[in-house]
Every structure is written in C-alpha cells, then in structure tokens.
Design a protein around this nucleic acid. Structure first.
Lengths: 333, 333
DNA sequence: GTCCGGAAGTGGTACGTATGACCGGTCGGG
DNA sequence: CCCGACCGGTCATACGTACCACTTCCGGAC
C-alpha cells in the first residue's frame, strides 16, 4: 500500500483557493463562459503543481459508465488474435475507451476447462469472439458485439466472408486442374469452420470428377501433420490439401516432407488467415488473408455505435486470396 | 445506455427484508458469527433471484484499491508477448486480480510514435516490458516491476538469462567447429540485445581464429533477409549466422535460399526465443527457448509480492538451448 | 429483580467526483 | 429607481459500497 495518497480535487481546490466544484468544472472542460480565464489558469497550475490525476473509480461511480469494454477471445498466445486486439484497442483509444481482455485460462482447449478470468472492473460493453459465446451468459444485459460468429438475429455481428474466401481457394485449385482435394479441417464446432467446409464441399460437388476427402484435427502443427499424413497415405491421395488455418498448413508441409513429397510440384497446399507464418514457410503459402486487425477495429466501431444507441448493421469483411508459391498445376498422370 | 439499471445491494436488502449493511456483510463473507444462517440463506437467495452483481466502481472507490494491474508491452501482434500476457493473467486471476493491457498504438516502431493507450481504470500496479520504460513516467509513484530490463536498483526486475543463453549458442557453434560467425542483430537499443551481443562477442574473442561480423536490422522477416544477405555476400562469409530472434532467423533462411545455400550443410543458423515459428521452419530451428509465459507469471508474482508490502528479490529465468536441425559442422575447406 | 454479555443486525458515514440548484454582485434598459 | 439578466462561482447532493459504532433482544448469573 502506498503510504502517500494521491491528491484529490479538493486538494487542488484548496491550493487554488476555489471550491471543489470549480475544479471539476475547469478540469472537465465544461467552463465555457462559467469561469473566468484567470481562475482557469490558477486551477490548472494548481493541478499541475500537485500532480493531480482524477480518481477513475469515483468518476466511474458518479457517471455510471466506465468507458471500458471487455474483449473476449480464446487466447492471445496464438498468432491470430493479437492483431484483433490491436485493431480493437486502437479504435477504442481514439474514442477515449479502454480495453480489458479476458481469455481462456492457461490456453486451455475450451471454456469447459475453466471460466474466463472475470475482469475486476465494471465494463460498458463486450466484444466477443465466437469462441467465447458460451461465456457471454455471465454478462446478460450488457451490450455486446460478436466477431466471426455468423449472422445472428439478436446480437450485432462482424464477420469475415469465409465462404467467399474458401470459394476463391477452391476456384484457384480447380482452375489449376486439381480434382482430388483433401480438406485438413479444424475439428472445432464453430460457425466459421462449418461455413468453410460447406463452401468447399459445394465447389467440389459441382466439379466433374471432383473428389473431396477430409481429416479433422486441432489447430496445432503436430496434430495437423498427423491428419495430413492420413489423407496423403490413403489410396488415390489428393493432389492438393486445403487447410483451415495457416498453422494447419504448416503441419501439412511437415507431412509432405516426411513422405518425400515436394511442394508444390507433388502437392499443392493452401492455408487460411495469412498470419506471419505464411511467408516464413518455404515455399511461401498460398492462403486467404483475413484482416484480423480490421476485424477488431470494425467490431469495436460497431460496439461503440451500439453504446451510442445506434443499432449497427451486420458487417462482413472480405477475405483476399493471396497466391504464393505453394500451389501449382497437378503432376499429370 | 441500457434502460434497465442493475440491481444494487439496497435492492437485494429490500428483497430479503434486511438492511443494506447486512447484505454487504453476507456477500463480503465477513459474517462469521455476526449473522444467522437463516438470514445468510435469505440474502443469498435474494441476490441470486435479482441477478445482483456488485458495482465494481463503487467498491473500488470505497476500498481505495482496484485489484487490477496494468501490463505494458510494445505489442500483442508479435508472437512473443502473447504468452507473456497469458502467464501474467493466469497468476493475476489466481489472486483475484484483473489485468489491463497497454501497447504502442498501431504497432508503431516505438513509444515516440505516440503514447501508450492510457487505461480508463485506476490501477494498483504496473508490470512493464523494458520496451515500455519511457512510458513509465506517467505513473510515478505506482508500484512497478520491470520485465527483461536488466538489473535495476530502484525497480524490482525479472529477467531472462540471455547472456548465458547466448553463450550456450556460441559454445554449441564453436564446439561444432565454426570460426567465422555472423551476428544478425536486432537494431534495438535495449538491455537484452546489448547483453546478447556482448556475450557473443566475448566468446568469439576468446576463440583462436574466431571472426565475428555483424549486421543490424529491425525485428522483421524482410529486414532480416537483407541484413543476412549483406553478411553472406561479404568476402570470406561466415559459416554460421547467430540471429537475435526467431523472426530474424526466418529472414536468414530466406537469404540463404535466395543465395542457393543449404541449411545446415552450407550454413548453420540459430535463433532466439523459440516461438511457434521455430518448429515450422524447415529445417527446424536451433534456438534458445525463453519461457515467455513464465516471465509473465514470475513478473506478476513479483508485482503481487510488492503490492503486499514485500520487496521481491530480482529473479532470473534461465534460457534453454534447443538443438534442432539448423546447425551442424561447417563444410570443410 | 437487576445486571451482564453475547448474538444478530442496523444506522450512518465516507470514499472522490460531477452537476443541478442556488446566490451575490454588477450593469443596462425602461 | 427598480427589475431582470448575466457573470462568476459555490453548495449540496447522489452515485453504491464497506465498515465502525451502536442498538436491541434475550438468556442466564447473582
């Protein structure tokens, strides 16, 4: 406990020889024509001299608002959500809002392994990843925006156009001549992955001679390697692997190398997200760029709209196909 | 603004037919022998029925403490600091503390590009990365712990043993027979990088025939590729590249590939940190594992100690050399 | 019958801020 | 000469909680 307590507005008032109300007026900027310039100067200099910082707890109590929102994401240890936080925090900061984060504890596999860490602060609103939807019940009544959760009637949403992204991937591969396609899928029960799988399946089903095989795995390099190996060692193996995530693609690379397959001449591989990893791999990964920072920023914008009383329209951020060196025409024969 | 205001302890008191004081007593757990079991049950059920959640702002004001600490790191978009946050948040949560984060805005290159986003909440303490040291002045008087900043007389610190780690790297390479070593250094004016450079230089200086060259770059794959290319295209190029960071090593891989050099047979490469990327590279990267999550956890532990009135001793977390496929004996001749 | 003391709970207040309601003085217009 | 408007501020209160000091009830001891 700090032995020296911080100065209050009353201390500033005493120092400046005015009342506490006047201090609040001046420092709150509400003094248009109510306070003389001389007094304003004197109050400001007194505050400066004492190093006065307003007590946020008292202000929050008085105003009934905290100008703070809660961001709920599964983890910040994985690559994707860091930029989401950054984008959200930037927009929040521009509007004078703070952000507190809540994640699954210990990078657990899911919310069943423990509750989100509850913030000690009161919050005005919630920006929640779809993977946090179960934990939202704790905060019934708090305005919320969901990220990447699919259209929802009750809660405003900001989504990626993952189906379009997956169609672009599939179109790219089939355009190159691939017919036997393997889907290394994230074994996670989330809208975004269901939407990707459905989009891919639809494209392959419409393709004469198209064959789609599938293996599920956790979003983890090692698990992905195993899943990809299963697909590649089956009879009549695919000539291209479509991975639900760049990390999964990294596992597919490992599987291919272990089997002596060259990427892309023996096997085309695609990812999803375009995290830093995608350009560090060799060859660089063909993937769909999901603007994670933009998701956070647009989500925060929607949430602030909601807090301001407007009901924001659902937004969809397009993914962009980024063709790099991991895809080419299949080996003939 | 939500039209329906949350119930207060007064509402609960009315519902249970007791006074607000009693509600506070019961829900605060301070009722040992002061309140009858029947009343306790009735208060608890009333709180449950109304969905009562204590107003944190009021509690913070009354108690003069927020049970919240501020974590200052340069960014959460880069791989390293996510686990730091996770470790810190886990320990904080176990002690009933919350965490708010402050980063450089927009992933700027440094604090000069703008202030850290100030949290809207009052905080009890600060856990700051060394890269945030400049911003610490705003919070003069708040208890703080520095991470990865080197020994400091005034502020408790938690550091990595980066010098030992670098000596392990250097010993590994020289033990393999390398004599001409290139240092792809992070061009960042921080204790941790100075310590790494000094440790490496000392080992090479003690080595008969040892030659150390150096190129600086930002912690960024593209910039690292350029820097590594400069070293590798010089006369009498190094047989091993020591990189200050795994991301820099990824750039070195790209430079080697562009020059037609095989890793490790033509060139050994080492990294630092052991982020996810290290095992996704091919071949997997020899590096020093810095336990980022442990840094956050130990730092938070030290900070909570400090808040409890104990002055924590400086702590040093050892780095561990992880030998993978990117290093071998230099090509003879 | 009086007094004591513990059990069970209540009243009142303070934390620091923001703000609506006041208030004394001056000045110009009617 | 009086009244209202306006300037430049102050007073008092409320936000919701935690906790100290106090009261009331009641069973027993003397």
């Amino acid at each position: 406990m700090p032995a020296v307590s911080r100065p209050t507005s009353k201390d500033v008032a005493h120092e400046a020889g005015v009342s506490q109300s006047t201090v609040s007026l001046v420092l709150g900027g509400k003094w248009n024509g109510r306070v003389s310039p001389a007094t304003v100067r004197s109050v400001r200099s007194a505050a400066e001299r004492l190093g006065y910082r307003p007590n946020q707890a008292a202000r929050n109590l008085r105003l009934g608002t905290t100008r703070t929102v809660l961001l709920m994401v599964p983890t910040l240890s994985a690559p994707f959500f860091g930029p989401v936080y950054t984008g959200a925090a930037r927009v929040a900061s521009q509007h004078g809002f703070g952000v507190v984060v809540s994640t699954w504890p210990d990078d657990a596999a899911g919310p069943a392994d423990g509750p989100f860490a509850a913030p000690q602060e009161a919050i005005d609103g919630i920006l929640a990843s779809s993977m946090a939807v179960e934990a939202l019940g704790e905060f019934r009544g708090t305005p919320a925006v969901m990220l990447d959760s699919g259209p929802d009637g009750a809660i405003p949403t900001v989504d990626f156009g993952v189906a379009d992204g997956m169609r672009a991937i599939a179109g790219h591969l089939t355009g190159l001549g691939h017919r036997r396609i393997g889907h290394v899928a994230a074994g996670v029960d989330q809208w975004t992955f269901h939407a990707r799988a459905a989009a891919l399946a639809a494209v392959v089903a419409d393709l004469p001679g198209g064959v789609l095989t599938r293996a599920d795995c956790a979003i983890d390099v090692t698990a992905a390697k195993d899943a990809a190996t299963r697909l590649l060692t089956a009879a009549d193996p695919p000539t291209a692997l479509v991975c639900d995530d760049d990390l999964i693609a990294a596992g597919a690379y490992k599987a291919a190398r272990a089997l002596g397959l060259d990427i892309p001449s023996d096997l085309s591989v695609t990812g999803f997200d375009d995290v830093l990893l995608a350009t560090a791999l060799e060859p660089e990964l063909t993937t769909v760029r999901l603007p994670a920072g933009e998701l956070g920023a647009q989500g925060m914008t929607a949430l602030l709209d909601l807090l301001a009383g407007h009901h924001p329209a659902p937004r969809v951020l397009p993914g962009e196909l980024v063709v790099r060196g991991s895809t080419t025409t299949p080996r003939t024969g």
